[in-house]
C-alpha cells in the first residue's frame, strides 16, 4: 500500500514541469509575441543519418613484455635448493634443463618444456636433489641420538626387538597440528618369534587369515578403530595377546577335522596306506604279524601329493612302489 502511494507521488512530480511548459506554449500563441519568438528559437534538425563523429584516439593496449626465462640467467654454481625449495608444479622458466616430454604424430622430437602440460601433470622431485637431502640430513642430525653399540647387526636388532611398530606423523601448515591419519598403528613381527606348537601354529594362521605372509613369515596387524594413537597401540597389543592364547586352546569340536579339511596330505590317514598294507599282508592269517607299509613309500606318496607332480617325484614313487610290490627294476638286472 505504501509502495503504491509512493509511485503515485513520483509520477505527479514528473508530470508537473511538463504541464507547466504546455501552459506557457498556450500563452505565447497570441499574434504579438509570435515573431520574436520565431527569431530567437532555432528549429532543431532531426538528423536521421549518423553524423560523422570526430575520430576518438584508439586506446593503446599496453602489453606486459614477458621477461626472458630466468633459467637463462642462472649461474652454473647457484644454490638449487633456494631456487626450488619445496614441492611445486613444474615451471619451465625456473628449471634450467632442456627437458622434452610428450607425443608427436610424426617421428619428430617431443615438445619442449614451454607450455608443456605433460610436464606439469607429472609429479617432480626437483626439491629433493641429493645435495638438498644431504643438507636437510645435516640439519636434522642435531636432533638424533647415536645408534646403540649393543645391537650392531640386524640379526641382533631383530632378536632383541622382534616387533616393529609403525606410525606416521604429519606436518603441514594448517591452524591445527592434528591429523586423523596419525592415529593408525601397524605392528609387524616374524611369526617364528612366537612359541607355538603344531596345532597352535595352524590355529594361529587360521585366526589371522590374510594378515600373515607365508613368503616372508611376517605377520602384520593394523589398528585404526580408536581415536588416539596410544589406544590403537594398546589395542594391537591386546589383539596379539588374545590371538596367542586363543591359538593354544583346543576346542572339543576340533577333533572332528576330516580328511577334506586337511591342509596337506598325510599318508597314514589315507586309503593309500590301507591299500599298501593289504597288499603286503596278502594271504596272511589273522594271527600272523602284520607288516606295515614302508616309511619311504609313504614319504614318496606324500611328496607326490603335497609338492605336486613332477618327473622326479614320479620316479621316486615308482622306485618305492616297485620295492613295495617286490618287483626287480629293469636296469639292475640287465647286463
Amino acid at each position: 500500500m505504501f509502495l503504491a502511494t509512493k509511485l503515485i507521488e513520483q509520477n505527479a512530480r514528473n508530470f508537473a514541469p511538463r504541464l507547466a511548459s504546455c501552459h506557457c506554449r498556450k500563452l505565447s500563441t497570441d499574434p504579438h509575441a509570435s515573431p520574436e519568438i520565431d527569431n530567437d528559437e532555432e528549429f532543431r534538425v532531426l538528423n536521421l543519418r549518423q553524423v560523422q563523429a570526430q575520430a576518438r584516439p584508439k586506446r593503446v593496449i599496453k602489453k606486459d613484455v614477458a621477461a626472458p626465462p630466468r633459467a637463462n640467467k642462472m649461474p652454473v654454481d647457484q644454490d638449487w635448493g633456494a631456487v626450488w625449495p619445496g614441492p611445486k608444479t613444474f615451471h619451465p622458466a625456473s628449471v634450467p634443463l632442456p627437458l622434452r616430454q610428450g607425443y608427436t604424430e610424426k617421428a619428430a622430437a617431443p615438445p619442449s618444456k614451454y607450455g608443456n602440460a605433460e610436464l606439469m601433470k607429472i609429479p617432480n622431485f626437483l626439491h629433493l636433489t641429493p645435495p638438498v637431502i644431504k643438507k636437510q640430513c645435516e640439519a636434522l642430525k642435531q636432533f638424533c641420538t647415536p645408534w646403540p653399540k649393543e645391537i650392531p647387526s640386524e640379526e641382533q636388532w631383530n632378536k632383541h626387538f622382534p616387533m616393529e611398530v609403525i606410525t606416521t606423523d604429519y606436518c603441514h601448515g594448517l591452524p591445527t597440528i592434528r591429523n586423523p591419519l596419525s592415529r593408525i598403528v601397524t605392528i609387524k613381527f616374524k611369526l617364528s618369534t612366537l612359541k607355538l606348537d603344531k596345532h597352535a601354529h595352524d590355529k594361529f594362521l587360521r585366526l589371522v587369515g590374510e594378515r600373515y605372509d607365508p613368503e616372508t613369515d611376517v605377520l602384520t596387524i593394523v589398528t585404526d578403530r580408536c581415536p588416539l594413537r596410544k589406544q590403537n597401540y594398546e589395542y594391537a597389543q591386546y589383539l596379539l595377546t588374545a590371538l596367542y592364547h586363543e591359538s593354544w586352546v583346543t576346542e572339543p569340536w576340533e577333533s572332528l577335522k576330516s580328511e577334506a579339511d586337511m591342509e596337506t596330505y598325510h599318508f597314514i590317514r589315507n586309503k593309500s596306506k590301507v591299500s599298501a598294507e593289504e597288499i603286503l599282508n596278502w594271504g596272511k592269517t589273522e594271527g600272523g604279524k602284520k607288516l606295515v607299509a614302508h616309511e619311504a613309500f609313504g614319504k614318496s606318496v606324500e611328496n607326490l601329493m603335497n609338492e605336486g607332480e613332477n618327473e622326479y617325484n614320479i620316479q621316486a614313487y615308482k622306485t618305492e612302489a616297485l620295492k613295495l610290490l617286490g618287483l626287480p627294476s629293469l636296469k639292475s638286472t640287465s647286463p
Binding site: 589315507n270 593309500s272 610290490l325
Partner: peptide, 11 residues
C-alpha cells in the same frame, strides 16, 4: 589315484 595306488608308473 587312490583306486590304483600302489601302481607302477611307466613313462
Amino acid at each position: 589315484f587312490e583306486h590304483v595306488d600302489p601302481f607302477v608308473p611307466i613313462k
